[in-house]
Design a binder for these strands. Structure first.
Lengths: 145, 145
DNA sequence: GCATAATGGTTTCAATTCGCAACTGATTGG
DNA sequence: CCAATCAGTTGCGAATTGAAACCATTATGC
């Protein structure tokens, strides 16, 4: 099932980017997480061209991030996140938080992610098992042995 | 300085993707985080075409994620992450962890991110202020007021 | 019952992006 | 001086993208 020619086969970052590493795929995922179900709804929210939307939906389905099914009501199609797709939540969240920090002028308004009680979602901070903060300087990649 | 025509101006996710939402930019960032400094080193690690690498380095510099400077030793150029670029660490990490979970067959080997003591970096789990786990179902976007 | 719109596409075609390969110009090493 | 390396630039064909038009089914209005 998976695409066999990875950009960098043993790097998980590169494999993920081979699957969703373009602007539209991740925006489709974002909107699916926020409740979009139908072709037209994705098109309206993202503003993506329809042929590209067709292509991206197919690819996401082919890779198991979305499932296509006939809507319970009429004969509509609907596109819902699978568990695999839903598991991109931390990716979308970190993209959002970076954007909030660095892609807006100070004081410029933007949408916010809130929990069930309406409280803003706290910023994600990668920590080691012992609780110390992790960043570029305190981690490194160990190649496959 | 920033690009003025955003795909979706008030969504931080969309803004971030406008800046780094392509495969190559994020792979360059990944390699910069893992120690790459020179044009040739980026080219060797990513396998990217050189004209595309030129373009991506320029864009990342223009948006303030990379800084270009003359290397301390000779008269070589080097490209180093700014604080803004370094702050993409959680994004790269979540992309990596999703890939580890879903883009490899069970038992298939892949590189791993470890901390200074060689311990694997734990998986990131978004939590609310009170410590409860957050996901797609327990959060939603609040539009700008 | 007929017109009209929406839904989920496909087709067409122009523009953009991509990547290979060749060339450049400035250094560096021997 | 000669060869190699570095950091590109240029040219060009191929692949990808995007806007708009078209199409075949259902729904909906009146």
């Amino acid at each position: 099932m998976p695409s066999t020619d990875w950009t960098d086969p043993e790097c998980p970052v590169a494999r993920t980017l081979d699957l969703v590493g373009d602007k539209w795929s991740l925006l489709v995922i974002r909107d699916a997480m926020d409740g979009a179900r139908s072709f037209t709804e994705f098109q309206r929210r993202t503003g993506i061209a329809r042929n590209i939307l067709t292509d991206r939906l197919r690819k996401l389905i082919a890779h198991g991030l979305l499932a296509q099914r006939t809507a319970p009501s009429g004969r509509r199609q609907e596109y819902v996140l699978t568990d695999v797709g839903r598991d991109l939540f931390p990716v979308i969240l970190t993209l959002r938080q970076w954007g909030e920090r660095h892609a807006f002028a100070p004081g410029e308004p933007h949408s916010t992610l809130v929990d069930q009680h309406g409280a803003p979602v706290p910023e994600i901070a990668p920590t080691s098992a012992d609780g110390t903060l992790l960043d570029t300087d305190t981690t490194h990649v160990r190649k496959t042995r």
